[in-house]
Amino acid sequence: MSMPKMHNTPGGRVFDVFNFILMGLIGIIMICPFLYIIAGSFATEAELTRRSFFIFPETFTLDAYKYIFSTDTFTRSILVSIGVTVVGTLVCLFFTFSMAYPLSRKTLMGRSFFMNLIVFSMLFSGGMIPGYIVVKSLGLLDSYWALILPLAINPFNLIIVKTFFQNIPIELEEAAKIDGCSEVGIFWRIMLPLSKPVLATFALFYAVAIWNDFFSALLYITDSAKWPVQVLLQQIIILSQAQLGDAASAGASFVEPPDQSLKLAVVVVATLPILIVYPFLQKHFAKGMLLGSVKG
């Protein structure tokens, strides 16, 4: 949010300067390793072996990226990831918000039963095999829906969205009712527009969750043409770790570990698309003032 212009005390000014520096420092500490990953992905293998940490490579090479994009595997998997993430986020938002709204109405009969149902499902899970059997019997194997539907509602997100809805003052709703709005009308016309920052937040949460999920794809998708990019990333990271085992079975696969620069380039390729989402959504967070102004 943008701060209204206000007079500042000397103490406040000191705080401002201090805060400015502190936040900058934290920002640098947190971005540095990623800068290293980017730099490393453009560096030669020899440099990566020799220098333990750097932000600028001495010799700049595109070899790793040339290798990655020498086939359409990565391009294809990134497109798959983008498609699944976009559709998946919309589906997740629909399921989550449509369920969170009724649950936020305190007068809803059976509300507490539903809430128990949701919380219980967070704490206990049937595990991987029954989950697989459900997906299989729904005929979702090898379908992109298998990467979306099982994640359609994150109970954690659902409960938080519900809390947001609860905080919207009841007067608004009553006013709308007097105007002749139905419950669903209130949801679409008042609640959703009011919760734009919340929508943006959870769009981000779901998009990131779907983007980062590789396990569903490993389990449910056998057709390699449908693998999202995280599966590829996971595979290359596992391969580079291949030495963990006992010597007697070491390297039993005959597979050579990938180059470090290649691994880092895959990290960059698999991470950058989703990283871009946030700055894009950021402006919607600022629009959250809407909610505040209604409240007042």
Binding site: I129, Y132, K136, L218, L219, T222, S224, Q235, I238, S253
Partner: peptide, 19 residues
């Protein structure tokens, strides 16, 4: 061919046995 990436092979194997 039923290819399974080796990062999930054991899980997939057990699932296949179960299914």
């Amino acid at each position: 061919m039923n290819w399974v990436l080796d990062s999930a092979y054991q899980d997939k194997l057990n699932i296949t046995l179960a299914s």
